[in-house]
Each structure stands twice: as C-alpha cells, then as structure tokens.
C-alpha cells in the first residue's frame, strides 16, 4: 500500500466521520417532540389541540369552517371554495407540499388527502408537525365522512359541533332517501332509473364506480349507477357498457361539452338520457362531487331535484354559519 493510497483512505474515513457527525448533529437539532400521523383509524391521540393548521384538502377546509375551527387554519390551498372569499395564504400542494411555506407559518399540523412521499411526511414529523391524512379515494362513504368530522372536531376541540353535524347528516340522509323512494314510486312505479355520472372525457369516459361517495349519492336518490357494476373507485368505463346499459339520466361535470354527447360515435348518442334531454350539469355544487364532506348532502338533494323535479326539504343546518353551506340554487 503506497502512501498516496493511505492518505486517500484516511481522507475518506475522516470525511465519512464528518458527514456522520453533521447528520447526527442535524437530527438532534430537529424538534424534540416528533409529529404524529393521524387518520380516522388512529383517532385523536394528541395531548394538545391543533391551532395552526395547514389544510391541503378543500373538503377539510369546509368542514373546519362548519365546526367553527376556521380560525385555527393558517394556510389553505388553491382548490378551497368554501367558505368563499378565503384570505388564507395558498400553500402549494402539487406535485409536492411546499414545506418551506408550511414551516414558515409555524404550522402544527397539515391536513391532506394526497399521497405525498414518505420523505416529505417524515420531514413534517421530524419537525414536530402532525400529518392528518383524510382519504378522498374509493372506499369513502358517508360513514367515513362522519368519522372524519368527528376526528377534525376532536383535534380542534370542536367535538360537540361535529356531533351536531353528524346528527344532521344522518337525519338528512334518511329524509332524502325516503323522499326519493316516494318520488320514484309515484313517477316510475318503483323501477329505479339508470343513471350515469360523467366526470371527465380526458382519455376515456371517467366516472364514479362502486365504493365511491358519488355512488352513494345515486343510492340515496334511488337511481342505479350503471358504472357501479363494473369497477370500483373513479375509473374510465368501457363505452360498450354505456351502450349496453343505456343511461336514462346523466349527471355531467361542468367540463363536459353537452353537444359532444350527441355527436356520431358517442356511446351516449342513442341513450334515453340524451334523447329525452335528461342531462344535468353540475354548477356551483360541482365541488360536492369531488370533495367528501358534510356538504355532499346537498348534492343528493340536487340530484333528487333534477331527476324527479321535486324539492325535498332538509332539516335546517344545526350551526349558524355566515356563509350558507348549501351551494344549490334550490334550498
């Protein structure tokens, strides 16, 4: 072994020790109390209440507002739509969380529904920031939404309001469902209509399959979601299935061009929904079809309104809010 090699190896060893020392030093300077990952399964296991929340989930922003915890939000996101006139700083959430902004706001928790990388989440936790993960994917139904309400209520010390909202949701759901069954009986002899939710035409016929909160809207409105039979979650349906099941009513996302449904080659061209013009485009309530939270009740109300032409009454919302949570033109 010549002297150059010895020196080289010595340098490498010293550098390795230095790098190790620097890293250990930095890991020690990170917050002593680590953050927690919180989901509806873990429940609220914190010793403190959250008071500086960054919400990267528009559904959670709306829920926190309804719970009376809006003052505890220090950062929102560009998709927040309720409450309107939001004055929160927008935190970048795509393609990754902007951790600098989150740290700069001295946040104590981040609420999100997106799959961020493990490394980013561990950065939050290492710096004492809790990560609240709320699912927005397949599998979310009204029972999950209620659990999320309860969780957010407990985390922010507004559990009593969460209970009130859940009670309101339950009574609204049973009211809406029995109303829908009644309208169905009187108009269609209890033969449920075949419905289809057209979410997006980007690269296929995107719709909501089984085990989605949108699918449960159809169930409560006593309409058969033809897409539920073929797949779960949000997916792109084979047009042959559309032709075969021939929907009688369609709920369209407002990105869908209605005239395209009638064009030649469209699997919807010969469907009763197009022929009878039973096409209903979402408007201000568009977000109710993408955000699972308590306001989804109003989406069911709207579906029943457009499908049966009836206006079912809802129990009044139990919490007095400055901004009406109901986005529909009907009330």
């Amino acid at each position: 072994m010549n002297s150059h090699l010895k020196i080289g190896i010595a340098v490498v060893v010293v550098l390795a020790v230095v790098v190790g020392g620097v890293v250990i030093y930095h890991e020690n300077t990170a917050a002593k109390v680590k953050g927690e990952i919180i989901t509806i399964n873990t429940g609220d296991n914190l010793q403190h209440k959250l008071t500086k929340i960054v919400s990267l989930d528009p559904a959670a922003t709306a829920t926190l507002y309804a719970l009376g915890a809006y003052n505890y939000i220090v950062g929102g996101n560009s998709y927040d739509s309720y409450p309107p006139n939001e004055s929160l700083p927008n935190i970048t959430d795509y393609p990754s969380m902007d951790l600098e902004q989150i740290f700069n706001l001295s946040a104590d928790a981040v609420i999100s529904f997106a799959n961020y990388s493990g490394a980013q989440i561990s950065q939050l936790l290492n710096n004492g920031i809790d990560y609240v993960f709320l699912s927005a994917d397949g599998g979310v139904n009204f029972s999950v939404i209620e659990k999320q309400n309860t969780l957010l209520g407990e985390l922010t010390g507004t559990g009593a309001n969460a209970t009130l909202i859940n009670q309101w949701m339950n009574s609204s759901l049973s009211t809406l469902h029995s109303d829908a069954l009644g309208y169905d009986q009187s108009e269609y002899n209890s033969t449920p209509l075949r419905g289809f939710y057209y979410l997006s035409s980007e690269g296929g016929y995107w719709t909501a399959g089984n085990s989605t909160f949108v699918n449960s809207y159809f169930e409560y409105a006593d309409v058969v979601n033809i897409a539920a039979a073929y797949d779960t979650g949000f997916y792109s349906i084979n047009p042959e299935n559309i032709l075969n099941d021939s929907p009688q009513v369609m709920i369209l996302d407002n990105s869908i061009n209605v005239s395209s449904l009638n064009s030649s080659g469209s699997p919807f061209q010969s469907s009763p929904a197009v022929l009878n013009d039973k096409l209903y485009t979402t408007t201000a309530n568009e977000n109710m079809f993408s955000e699972p939270n308590f306001r989804d009740i109003f989406a069911i109300q709207w579906i029943i309104y457009v499908v049966y032409g009836q206006n079912p009454a809802l129990p009044s919302f139990p919490i007095n809010l400055t901004y009406n949570p109901n986005p529909n033109e009907v009330s």
């Binding site: 790098v19 890293v23 890991e27 980013q120 561990s122 950065q123």
Partner: peptide, 24 residues
C-alpha cells in the same frame, strides 16, 4: 426535494466510498 438528513446520510457515505474507489 425528497432528500432529508436521514436518507442523505447513508447515500453520502456510499457515494464517498464508491467515488474514491473509482478514482483509485
């Protein structure tokens, strides 16, 4: 941006040693 001190540490050591071995 997914790099934090925890993942950097082992990678830095591996790169240091392999780079030196290549240089040799």
């Amino acid at each position: 941006e997914n790099i934090n001190w925890t993942v950097l540490y082992p990678v830095a050591i591996v790169v240091l040693i392999t780079s030196y071995a290549i240089y040799l």
